[in-house]
Amino acid sequence: MIFAIIGLIIGLLIGFVLNFTYAATFTIYITLIILILIQSLLRIIKNEDMNFPLYKEAILIGSEIAFACLLAYIGEKLGISLYLAIVLSFGLRIFNDFNIIVKKVIKYDKIN
C-alpha cells in the first residue's frame, strides 16, 4: 500500500516535470492504459498471498494493453465506440477489486 502511494507521488511528480505532450487522438488509448494499470494494481494488492514474478505480470499487463488498444483502434476505424466495452469491463473489475480490498481492510467478514 505504502509502495503504491510512493510510486503514485513519484510518477505524478515526474509527469508534471516532464515537458511532453502527445496528439489528441491518443487520448483514448492513454485513458485505456491508465484504466488497465489501475485494475492490475488493485488486483495485485487484492491477492496478498500470491506472488508472481515480475516478467509474468509484465506479459499479462502488456498483452491486456495491446489487446485493448487493438480493440479501440478497430472500433475507431469502424465508427463504433468499441473502447466503451473495455472501459465497462475494466471499470467493473476495478470496483470489484476495490470492494474486496476495502472488505479486507475493515474485516467485513468477521462479525466482531
Binding site: F3, A4, I5, I6, G7, L8, I9, I10, G11, L12, L13, I14, G15, F16, L18, F20, T21, Y22, I30, I33, I34, L37, I38, S40, L41, I44, I61
Partner: peptide, 11 residues
C-alpha cells in the same frame, strides 16, 4: 505500476 499510473495520469 503505481509509478506508471502516476506518470500517465499527470501526462
Amino acid at each position: 505500476l503505481a509509478l506508471l499510473i502516476g506518470l500517465l495520469l499527470s501526462l
